[in-house]
Design a binder for these strands. Sequence first.
DNA 1: GTATCATATGTCAGGATTGACATAAAGGAT
DNA 2: ATCCTTTATGTCAATCCTGACATATGATAC
Lengths: 191, 191
Amino acid sequence: MTTLGYAILGLLSREDLSGYDLKQRMAGRVGYFWSARHSQIYPELARLEDGGYVTHSVVEQRERPDKKVYEITARGLDDLKEWVTRPPVPRPTRDELTLKAYSVWLADREEATRLFREEELRHEEQLAHYEGLRTWMEGEWREDLTSTNSPEFASYATLRRGISYEREYAGWCRWMADSIEGRGPTRVGKE
Amino acid sequence: MTTLGYAILGLLSREDLSGYDLKQRMAGRVGYFWSARHSQIYPELARLEDGGYVTHSVVEQRERPDKKVYEITARGLDDLKEWVTRPPVPRPTRDELTLKAYSVWLADREEATRLFREEELRHEEQLAHYEGLRTWMEGEWREDLTSTNSPEFASYATLRRGISYEREYAGWCRWMADSIEGRGPTRVGKE
DNA sequence: GTATCATATGTCAGGATTGACATAAAGGAT
DNA sequence: ATCCTTTATGTCAATCCTGACATATGATAC
């Protein structure tokens, strides 16, 4: 079973979805840290059905084309549960911007500053978006977030990761831009 | 030109290296955020030489097999410089542990706690290792780090990213483990 | 009427990456 | 003598993933 397979099962464990629905959720991010195109999703659904992890039923619609709605099986749910706590095999982190930083000493000062300022902005914007979601979740899901065995807690947990990830990334970009610009890093709090 | 190609050029811009040397440096990490196996490096070197980005000369050794030492060309260096400040096409972040967190509500409490504690430890250890390197760099390279157009600054910059990345990741894992364990997150400073 | 858009499902060629397989030279250990 | 390790260079099959191609329905816009 591939990681993508588990990503799909993770979504189907919460609600029944069509391939198109899955695509919508995975185009952005599943819990913000996995993504896939529909060209990968449809074949994977077929494999999952082959393996008995999901089943589908055709739903006829009046105002749209028919769709196949997928449902997770008992077997699929068992496999998903087992996978969740299995230690992931560490995979190398690949980050092109950080790789660029390794050769930044060769670059034009101004262009390099612009690059890291732009990236800082990108991550600040993503962070602001996530913070909005967080406020909404903390208001709407106050009760659900007290128990860690609710899907709401799990969604909130991945969002927390998104927030700390974007904050960290934006902070490093700011430090880079400040350093290259020559102003010396701006201190915001300690470190 | 592939990103791997630029990773190799980034190393060759600092010193001439053989395929084997490159493998050693990329097995760990190039500046900690790119990696490759030798099965990818050797063909890529051939492509780079084909494109005129590098040249090689055979160096005979007495106590070891002969080796091909690669050198970056003027063309290669120009291309590398241009690439450094070109905005990277945003690629989706894929993180299996965070994906697991999205389905953690299905998991056994104890097993999930153990998982995130283990991962916390892994990242703490990596962080400690990086902090050691940082102390060494700040002592050894005090002067070089004042100018951002030195390779030492670039190495230091990627290390900074490694440090903040690991600290962020470890912190999130701790929050996860604490939350699932039921002790409620341990506050360390604010946030 | 026709063009475009959102819904809906698929295939396929090609590139990136991994893990296994393969060879060879020299040193050190048993 | 034989085995193991390090250095050194390569190939190849399989997998993951992207981007392009392909088709169909019904709604809305012009």
